[in-house]
């Protein structure tokens, strides 16, 4: 009875899991198909291995630039967001100052405002200050993260106050307590924000689509979308391009999966 139930459960789970990864499997299979067989009846597991599709895809679009940009932009957004959010979260959690509530709710309030409200003026501002087609335009407007500030503040509040009070009695400055006591104790929350910011930066689409045109400044996501316009009917090439845009993230994810999911749940629950 129990074994019978277990088997059914595994069947359901395995079938579901298969459906979840089927798109990836099929993407890889298609990317290895010879062009001539594009319109032949499809198959799930690779039969032929036309690795030259990858070379063709890479040659026909500037994937190297897209990659460099995506990596650079995502890392900068991540570092910037984590550092700035931690700095802003600290006074909200620990210091007593005029206008504390005002600023806190002002920041939180913008969390409720969807990007669509700001996107048109933000684009106009970027255009005015001549930042179209720069990496700055992709990074700097994205560094203010009310979510990050809120997340870290909540976490800082869970750290016993006695710890930094003791340090202050010993004569430590606020900056010292922030740097040497609060931050080291907040590693899980910092990790989770790091992951959030990186995914956000890597997957962002509308903003780079709007502010970048030239391949030197465009990210992988926009590059793939453009590439699908360019080789829309040549599925093997398109899929080869898509594989190369996804695989790095999947590898990074598989390597750091444990920290990744831990961080995510910290983020979700602490809210």
């Amino acid at each position: 009875m129990k074994i019978y139930k277990k088997i059914i459960m595994h069947l359901i789970l395995a079938l579901g899991a298969f459906i979840m990864v089927l798109p990836f499997l099929w993407m890889i299979t298609t990317s290895l198909k010879p062009l001539k067989l594009t319109y032949d009846s499809p198959y799930i597991f690779p039969k032929s291995f036309e690795f030259s599709n990858y070379i063709t895809a890479w040659k026909s679009a500037d994937f190297l630039s897209f990659y460099k940009n995506s990596i650079f932009v995502s890392i900068c957004i991540t570092l910037g967001t984590v550092v700035l959010s931690a700095m802003a979260a600290y006074p909200f959690a620990r210091l007593n100052f005029t206008g504390k509530n005002f600023w806190f709710y002002a920041f939180l309030g913008t969390m409720m405002i969807p990007f669509y409200v700001e996107v048109i003026p933000l684009y106009k501002i970027i255009e005015k200050i001549g930042w179209l087609d720069t990496r700055r335009a992709l990074i700097i407007p994205r560094l203010f993260s009310p979510f990050g500030i809120f997340l870290l503040r909540q976490y800082f509040l869970t750290i016993p106050k006695e710890l930094d009070e003791a340090a202050e009695i010993d004569g430590a400055s606020k900056f010292y307590t922030f740097w040497k006591i609060i931050l080291p104790l907040s590693k899980p929350a910092l990790a989770s924000l790091t992951i959030f910011s990186f995914i956000f930066g890597w997957n962002d689409f509308l903003w780079p689509l709007l502010v970048t045109t030239r391949p030197e400044y465009t990210t992988v996501q926009v590059g793939i979308s453009n590439f699908s316009g360019k080789y829309g009917t040549l599925w093997p090439y398109l899929m080869a391009g898509t594989v190369t845009s996804i695989v790095p993230v999947i590898i990074i994810f598989l390597l750091g999966q444990k920290q990744f999911i831990e961080g995510l749940t910290v983020g979700g629950i602490k809210e």
Binding site: C76, G80, V83, D133, T134, R135, I139
Partner: peptide
């Protein structure tokens, strides 16, 4: 004074110069 961000801004700036070449 945040070291990391300092370097980021520098990267951004040198980027800006490059972007002027074609445009």
């Amino acid at each position: 004074f945040v070291v990391l961000l300092g370097s980021l801004a520098a990267c951004g700036k040198s980027e800006a110069k490059k972007s002027n070449v074609p445009t």
